[in-house]
Amino acid sequence: MAAQATSAAAPETDAAGLGKARATAFVTPALLLVGAFLVFPALWTLYLGITDYRLTGIAAADPQIVGLQNYTDALTDPQFRNALALTLLFVLGSAIVGQTVLGFSIAWSMRAVPKTVKTVVESLVLLAWILPSSIVAFLWIAYLNRDNGTLNSVLGTSGFDWLLGHPMLSIIVFNTWRGTAFSMLLFSAALNAVPPSQLETARLAGADTFAQFRDVVFPHIRGHVLTNTLLISLWTFNDFSPYLLTAGGPNHASETLPVYIYNSALYSGELGYGSAISLIMLLINLLIAVFYLRLLKDRRS
């Protein structure tokens, strides 16, 4: 059998002549840092979750193995279930509905507007995304303020306290505002990649806007929709900024899982219990991520 060798199959050659030893030395520092501050904490959660580790007191000095106690505690704790339900609502409302719909709508409309309008809109959306979270949290506290807030004066609802009256709605709208940029950027890129010739063909065949979208655009961006949904779900699920707005209140009404972990583990000091919830969160993250990676792999092959 005659062997075939294409130049593409001529594999990744060590173009600079680095050599395996030097290459290993190059990779090691990054791996050490990632190992210590990313991998190890994740694995340690497995152990911490089965102990009664506390920040102070006897259990701090000599933690005991308590088995699955923390997990059964968590799963039966109405506070935890409340947090989980609120988190799902938060992800569904702000990421899957809010950011996706708004992000796509903006990306879609920006194809048909003058360049200045496009620049202004995109800059505003991006600004909301890139500003540090403690700044935007305060901006929203001011914006939603009961007596002097801009929102109340625009809507004529002076005297209404949004963060107390509708805490979940507030953080959902806040996070939609904050995170739409990603969906907008991703969908703009995806829409740009739709071949104009296909759209023209559809137009020549007499397709209206909706038919063009359904038959030409959507098949092209289907993968992006899924990618976008999974990524923003993952990030929103792990988003800590609601804490900056409401700290989980009033009376746990906006206490999403990240806030719940902080409040129960670091604020109240129940580290073992907090680790158990952390692990549950990690597992949910893993689920979304595996689903996402499988998708990426399918698309590459």
Binding site: V34, A36, F37, L38, V39, F40, P41, A42, W44, T45, L48, Y53, L234, N238, D239, F240, L257, P258, I261, Y262, A265, L266, L271, G274, S275, S278, M281, L282, N285, L286, A289, V290, Y292, L293
Partner: peptide, 19 residues
């Protein structure tokens, strides 16, 4: 790739703090 997306500061805040 997997780790960077699942081990977030929020999910791992307890072990990171302890570490």
């Amino acid at each position: 790739l997997l780790l960077s997306s699942i081990v977030t500061g929020t999910a791992a805040m307890v072990p990171i703090f302890l570490l």
